[in-house]
Design a protein around this nucleic acid. Structure first.
Length: 313
DNA sequence: AACTGGGACAACCGCATACCT
DNA sequence: CAGGTATGCGGTTGTCCCAGT
């Protein structure tokens, strides 16, 4: 979206004048003034910059405009599944520390991430009639959406390597991905410090075999506590999302015992959606986090419940 | 065609912290 | 060390656009 540059700078009727200071949407002329001034003198000292550049704006306003819109290294366009995955993971760890989260998404601003969270993620929580900070909703993210995102990332990767053609992340291929966005490699995109542990390819981490909750290795404290899982072979990386029967059952409001896969999802593996035993599934019914629409009932009923498990190959 | 409601995003506001004198 | 100023951050609001009616 590039509303500011489409706006006619003469349409200033709605803009509020507070004393000698302008407020409201920025005009093209103001943008040019700010960009040119920063190009010549650099950024910083925003109050004096605003005056020197001839902008009738507060320093705060100039800084925000520059950081959130005019800065040349901004990456505009659709939030990719990789970025979504990272946002979910980092938010689960740090909460609403938007600036901190944004530092790990090059070219994205804290404002953009914050808006994404409010418009997409909180919307889903609202649809599910639960608080976005509730354990219930966190479980939905952790056990359904995040594995699904991993699945989609890997599927797209596979498709890309097979066809070596531009990809669309959108369902149905109707909405083209911003062409400026390169599709990053999952392994390189997901650095080890983002809550991944090393585990062997051939065996899942030891678990009780009961419904004991295996908490995610990522913690909100941000202290970097890592799980005491076995070391990996062959550089395998494990995604922190774990599939746990208790939480899955809670998510689905059912007492039915769900086959659990307590091993974290491994990024390097092939992921498959597996129907629950004894149930028939016409189509995968997991929430689609990207397109922003899904059937709430499909989350909460058993009819469409799928869970994801790593397929060892 | 007009209206309306919701989504998406830009911008503002208040507070906290850092920095400077 | 205290006070003032600048900057950064998170929450909230405002505005535009578009799909549905």
């Amino acid at each position: 979206m590039d509303m500011a540059h489409e706006r006619d700078s003469s349409s200033s009727e709605e803009e509020v004048m507070a004393g000698d200071l302008r407020r409201g949407p920025w005009t093209v002329e103001e943008d040019i003034l700010l960009v040119n001034y920063i190009a010549a003198h650099g950024e910083g000292r925003w109050n004096s910059l605003a005056r020197s550049a001839g902008l009738k704006r507060t320093g705060k306003s100039c800084r925000l405009r520059w950081l959130n819109y005019l800065r040349p290294d901004l990456r505009r366009g659709t939030i990719t599944p990789q970025e979504q995955l990272l946002i979910l993971e980092l938010h689960s760890r740090w909460g609403n520390r938007w600036s901190k989260i944004a530092q790990h998404l090059p070219g994205r601003t804290d404002n953009e991430i914050k808006n994404y969270w409010r418009t997409r993620v909180q919307k889903h929580a609202k649809q599910l009639k639960c608080d976005v900070n509730s354990q219930q909703f966190k479980d939905v993210m952790r056990y359904l959406w995040m594995p699904r995102l991993v699945e989609r990332i890997q599927a797209a990767e596979a498709a890309q390597s097979a066809a070596d053609t531009p990809l669309s992340w959108q369902h149905g291929g109707g909405d083209a991905l911003d062409e400026s966005l390169e599709l990053p490699d999952v392994d390189s995109f997901w650095p080890a410090e983002y809550g991944v542990a090393q585990l062997p390819n051939t065996s899942a981490p030891e678990h009780s075999g009961t419904t004991t909750m295996s908490s995610s290795p990522s913690t909100d404290s941000g202290t970097g506590a890592q799980p005491s899982w076995p070391a990996a072979a062959d550089g395998a990386e494990w995604f922190t999302t774990t599939c746990d029967a208790t939480s899955a059952a809670a998510i689905c409001n059912t007492d039915q015992v769900i086959q659990q896969q307590q091993a974290p999802c491994q990024l390097g593996e092939t992921w498959t959606s597996v129907p629950l035993p004894g149930l028939e599934f016409p189509e995968p019914g997991v929430a689609d986090f990207d397109i922003g629409s899904f059937d709430v009932d499909s989350i909460w009923s058993m009819d469409d419940l799928w869970y994801t498990q790593p397929q060892f190959v």
